[in-house]
Simulated scan of single mutants.
Amino acid sequence: MNLNQFHQLAEQLFSNIEQQLDAFSQQYDTDIDYETHGNVISITFENHSKIIINTQEPLLQIWMASRQQGYHFDFKDGIWVCNRCGLTFQQLFNQSVQDQIAN
């Protein structure tokens, strides 16, 4: 993957994240605030916990830091996959959001 492709994929992922956060907010009747600044999305929950998602351009990766831990994702076979546990970004993102809403 070249840098231009990486930026397109990351932009698409960030757009999907914003849509999902709006849906989570409605589904769980909770306030979820998020801000996007360049290559970083900062998500803040009612309990003041955060999830930070950013691009790591030199590595062509997406990184996510949540209360559970940090995750690094590589783009493989059309999806973002954690390079440590093999779960997809979507799986870990959903799990992290639900955990931070519940606590």
Rank of each mutant, 00 (worst) to 15 (best):
N2D: 15
N4D: 06
Q5V: 04
F6H: 12
H7G: 00
H7L: 07
Q8D: 12
L9S: 08
L9N: 13
E11K: 05
E11M: 03
E11L: 06
E11I: 02
E11C: 06
L13H: 03
F14E: 05
S15R: 00
N16T: 14
N16E: 15
I17K: 12
Q20A: 12
A23P: 03
A23Y: 02
A23R: 05
F24L: 06
S25H: 01
Q26P: 01
Q26C: 02
Q27Y: 11
D29V: 02
D29E: 05
D29N: 14
T30H: 11
D31M: 09
I32S: 04
D33G: 09
Y34E: 07
Y34T: 05
Y34W: 15
E35P: 00
E35T: 13
T36C: 04
T36H: 04
H37N: 09
H37D: 12
G38R: 13
N39M: 14
V40S: 09
V40Q: 08
S42F: 09
I43Y: 02
I43S: 00
I43K: 02
T44C: 05
T44L: 09
F45E: 07
F45M: 05
E46G: 01
N47D: 04
S49W: 11
K50F: 02
I51E: 07
I52N: 08
N54E: 01
T55Y: 03
T55A: 09
Q56E: 08
E57K: 15
P58Q: 08
Q61Y: 07
Q61K: 10
Q61N: 11
I62V: 15
I62P: 04
I62M: 13
W63H: 10
M64I: 14
M64S: 14
A65L: 08
S66A: 14
R67K: 15
R67H: 14
Q68R: 14
G70C: 11
G70S: 14
Y71G: 13
H72Q: 02
F73W: 09
D74K: 02
F75V: 07
F75I: 08
D77Q: 03
G78L: 11
I79S: 14
